[in-house]
């Protein structure tokens, strides 16, 4: 125990940095992913065929590819196209696209479940479609997907561990580095697991709170 605490003291900064990077990457990719998903979901629901169709294909393809493959592809394949991204950048790209495709599908589902009478009523008072989206449809859709959205956040935190394979210094990567030095495999993987668990249970807490706050009763 004493030795563990000693090693932990030595490893405190790399661990903290890793944890911070994990949280940063997760927050950034869920933010970008939600924005992508908003456009995707709106396009899928209200777009004309020439908009809907390509989005449909993209979303289905991305959702069919394992996240790890997406990560490796954005790290290794883009260099062939002359685009050189750092590990963090390509990781962010992959996770944002992954999140965007899922959010697009989730938001489409939510928008489609809103009764058409809502659009009729909003049109009847003279709102234009962008305003109907902003004040009538999206507020309802976002409330509805709040639990799933929070869940996606937790999924992203877990998926971010995959970035360790391309050498992004997030929590899992840092943990592996530390274990490489001190060989305390069990202790530090255990600690790493507990940290992920804590982050995700905080996200879940927040989700419950937000869910109650925004519920439609």
């Amino acid at each position: 125990m004493e030795q563990f605490l000693h090693e932990l003291w030595i490893a405190r900064w790399p661990l903290a940095q890793g944890l911070l990077l994990t949280v940063e990457i997760s927050v950034a990719s869920i933010t970008c992913g939600t924005i992508i998903g908003l456009f995707g979901g709106i396009g899928l629901t209200y777009g004309k065929w020439f908009l809907r169709w390509p989005i449909r294909v993209l979303v289905d393809c991305i959702r069919g590819i394992p996240v790890l493959v997406l990560i490796l592809a954005s790290f290794y394949l883009l260099t062939f196209a002359g685009i050189n991204l750092t590990a963090i950048e390509s990781g962010l790209l992959a996770l944002s696209i992954f999140c965007g495709a899922h959010m697009g599908e989730i938001i489409r589902g939510a928008l489609q479940s809103i009764p058409p009478g809502q659009i009729d009523a909003a049109r009847a008072i003279g709102l234009t479609f962008p305003r109907i989206l902003a004040y009538v449809l999206l507020p309802q859709a976002m409330r509805q997907i709040m639990p799933v959205w929070i869940n996606t956040g937790a999924e992203l935190v877990k998926a971010s561990t995959l970035l360790s394979v391309i050498g992004t210094g997030e929590l899992l990567f840092r943990t592996q580095e530390i274990i490489g030095r001190n060989f305390m495999t069990l202790e530090f993987y255990g600690l790493c697991g507990i940290l992920y668990f804590l982050v995700n249970s905080m996200i879940e807490r927040f989700g419950k709170f937000a869910g109650q706050r925004f519920a439609l009763q």
Partner: peptide, 18 residues
């Protein structure tokens, strides 16, 4: 939208914004 605003409509199913 501008022309729709000149008429008001009330629906069978209320269609209030929940």
């Amino acid at each position: 939208a501008r022309q729709r605003a000149m008429t008001g409509m009330v629906f069978q199913s209320f269609n209030l914004f929940p």
